[in-house]
């Protein structure tokens, strides 16, 4: 990263509701019990979004009538982030969408439907919504965004990769601002998939959640706005053993006295705890009680930005602990 990125504004949709206040109230998010598909007796706590909390106006828009739930979460989070900046030139606004799982609700529905009814009866209405970048397409159309637009897929480290893409666009002059959105939607088959990966093993698992978070980034520090001052990604691992080295190498890139946001969830948590030994955990930004992959990364970044906008003298390091392949991290500072 060549120059700091300013976090100009943000927006969130979470099981707690709309906006940052609902996000920060995560201890009180409603949870429900979701059953696995093959074995309904196996049940897990999940925090899903009640569709009725989403503004009706999006459902009325032609692009969003048939759009996947993830598209609805994204448009609302993006609209919140853009609301304080009506003057932004949309033709110079870049857009990046980060997801680990993507459009799973419609993908499963589409596949199941033609497996049941026959391939000849596969739905031409559903198929386009299964494509990874369809949520972003809806967003770009609805918000009339004319700058560069990327969908980046991957584990939680993908968020740091996306921040780097944004930094690159801003540095090269391809965009004046970049909106980076992390989003996920819940679909019950995920429970079996996560169990197969042994990601539901206690004691480190947390309830899965869905939603979206959006941060609007600009170039250089802006008074009163927190900044991303350092960004590192690409610390790869191929096994849980290798993840230890990757974690140590990643964290070694940052000053040891930088307070760390507690963001490690799942099997990687013991790795994180070991790697963070001797470092201080930031006590003003409590660890999320849920896991929502790409959305969690956005939420952690938003919560840190919110904190630093109130306490501009503070700094925080946010590690993005990928569960599959990479670790990345970003250091944030308040700007008086």
């Amino acid at each position: 990263m060549n120059t700091p990125l300013s976090i100009l504004s943000w927006g969130a949709v979470s099981p707690g509701g709309l906006g940052v206040e609902a996000l920060e109230n995560f201890q009180n998010w409603p949870t429900t019990v979701a059953s696995e598909v093959a074995d309904p007796a196996r049940q897990h706590l999940v925090a899903t979004i009640d569709a009725s909390i989403l503004p009706e106006k999006w459902r009325m828009r032609p692009r969003f009538r048939r759009a996947s739930p993830i598209s609805h979460y994204m448009i609302e989070a993006a609209a919140q982030a853009l609301a304080p900046h009506p003057q932004i030139e949309r033709n110079r606004l870049g857009l990046i969408y980060v997801s680990f799982i993507g459009c799973s609700v419609y993908s499963i529905r589409f596949y199941r439907q033609f497996q049941k009814d026959g391939r000849r009866f596969a739905s031409p209405m559903l198929f386009p919504e299964t494509v990874a970048n369809s949520p972003l397409s809806h967003l770009a159309a609805e918000l009339e965004i004319g700058g560069p637009v990327y969908s980046q897929i991957g584990d939680k480290s993908c968020w740091s990769s996306a921040l780097r893409t944004a930094a690159c666009w801003l540095h090269n002059g391809d965009a004046e601002q970049v909106l980076v959105i992390g989003a996920e939607e819940f679909e019950p088959h995920q429970l079996e998939a996560f169990r197969s990966m042994r990601w539901l093993a206690k004691p480190y698992t947390r309830p899965f959640a869905e939603g979206a978070g959006a941060v609007l980034l600009g170039k250089g520090p802006h008074s009163g706005r927190p900044s991303i001052v350092s960004l590192k990604d690409g610390f790869c691992f191929r096994s849980r053993n290798e993840s230890r080295t990757a974690a140590e190498r990643c964290l070694a890139e940052f000053a040891p006295n930088l307070p760390v946001l507690d963001s490690a969830v799942g099997w990687i948590r013991p790795v994180a705890i070991a790697a963070l030994k001797g470092r201080t955990v930031h006590d003003g930004i409590p660890a999320l009680a849920h896991e929502a992959f790409g959305a969690s990364c956005a939420w952690d970044t938003i919560r840190a930005a919110q904190r630093l906008s109130i306490h501009p003298e503070e700094r925080v390091l946010i590690p993005y602990w990928g569960l599959s392949q990479q670790i990345g991290a970003a250091a944030l500072e308040g700007t008086p």
Binding site: V131, A132, S151, I153, G154, D233, S324, Q325
Partner: peptide, 26 residues
Amino acid sequence: YQAQQQVNDLQTFLGFSGPAAVVSNA
């Protein structure tokens, strides 16, 4: 199934590591 698996395979069998971005713009 995860996109990172191909990244992993490329890095493992061709002997390198480093950042990898997967752009999925259809």
